[in-house]
Design a protein around this nucleic acid. Structure first.
Lengths: 230, 230
DNA sequence: CGTTCATTTGAGTGAAGTCAAACCGAGTGG
DNA sequence: CCACTCGGTTTGACTTCACTCAAATGAACG
């Protein structure tokens, strides 16, 4: 099984941020969302781990970060995939309670959690932005919960592809999968084999076509949405 | 199946709040969390429905409210049980995207959503409280997701009972179940029958005892925690 | 060209679902 | 006070969807 194999020691990932200039922003100068250094993350590298002190909040600039919970016996549930523009590490706890691991090469912007929250306690509009950001995460988590709790493997996978397609810029009918089958399986509460078999079934149904394992061409979008249920 | 049987018309539940005096608060006078009228809710009555405009935020004063999503074919996923002290209806969307239904007789405090959010845009400390409240909900939703996505029926049910016991004031080993089996099933992503069978198994294992179907006596708390996994 | 890692496919099993019937406790009315 | 109903729960028999274990295939890379 996948897991924390690449990760050596609880804090190995902290402290060696690639020093990149702060991006010049057209926004208000005090906008913490636009400052912070950029850090490069390799595929499978951790941004932070379950149990680490929550020192930073990160904004994804490139790639995909999987937030996940690892159970004692190796089972893993992915909580969400964070895509460019998303924030990870928000919340009020002193320590992280999830792993954050890149599913492919990625870049994140690092923002000091304490600075952010100190400023939020003075600046209501920043606090409201944080509120809206977590609210969006909450909606996403609940929607995934409905899927995992009630839907069949086919419905979950079709829904996942529909969601990915909606996120995709450019041709909505060509979706790149920037993660392994095991990541999809752990997101949807299935096994790798079931994910693979379901993809195969969608292919034989001529609803999708798969190129080199990582690129999904949606041949019949309406049917896919239908298969996703509501 | 359960569902919206008690509910007649999308907005039948709005507008007939029981007029109760605003509670005198030791807090700051501007504290919106302490004002608002109290509304009585009968068992199975809706506080609000999926699709209703989000006019109010509610604080549970008594009883339990189930937040749920109903799928087209009757399947239902409960997102969370809201207990006294919890808030429901937070978020930034104009409309509710879930049903909120009492599992037993309940009372909620009604707070104007617009007033709350207008004030939050001026008062950073209020905005931060909202932020913290949703963050807590987010953590709860994610934890349930892990359970539903990865754990067996026994693990889910044991975990549910452990969680209830932790919430219980007074004797931690006597847990009242203020909801039906169908509510527990829809929360955990199981069927009524599986919930019932699992409870029976816990009884034959002498880990719990059940009195009149609604009162669980925890006989072996350590074992229960063990069965819940992590 | 061989190694490694990811994915696919196959065969068999099992945990939870479905359908159906029995049971139980709380009201209600004769 | 008992019979009857009604909603909820439990139990039983059977089915199925997804899991497990195992092997084959495919892609990437030195």
């Amino acid at each position: 099984m996948l897991g924390a194999s690449e990760h050596i020691g609880t804090n190995a990932h902290v402290g060696q941020f690639a020093s990149s200039g702060t991006m010049s922003s057209a926004d208000a100068p005090a906008d913490r969302f636009e400052r912070g250094t950029i850090r490069r993350i390799e595929a499978k590298e951790h941004v932070f781990c379950d149990g680490d002190p929550r020192t930073h909040v990160f904004r994804i600039e490139e790639g995909v970060i999987a937030l996940s919970k690892l159970l004692g016996d190796g089972r893993r549930q992915i909580i969400e995939f964070a895509y460019p523009g998303d924030y990870i590490g928000l919340g009020t706890l002193r320590e992280h309670i999830f792993d954050a691991q890149a599913t492919c090469a990625a870049k994140v912007r690092c923002l000091s959690a304490t600075a952010l929250e100190q400023e939020a306690s003075r600046d209501a509009s920043l606090a409201l932005r944080l509120y809206k950001a977590v609210s969006a995460e909450l909606a996403a988590a609940r929607s995934l919960l409905v899927s995992v709790g009630q839907q069949s493997a086919m419905e979950r996978l079709a829904g996942f592809l529909v969601g990915l397609s909606a996120r995709t810029e450019g041709d909505e009918n060509v979706v790149k999968l920037p993660m392994r089958r095991s990541d999809i399986a752990d997101l949807l509460g299935l096994t790798i084999e079931t994910v693979s078999r379901t993809i195969t079934k969608l292919r034989t149904m001529k609803v999708i076509d798969v190129v080199r394992g990582t690129e999904v061409h949606i041949l019949d979008g309406d049917r896919l949405v239908e298969l996703a249920g509501q």
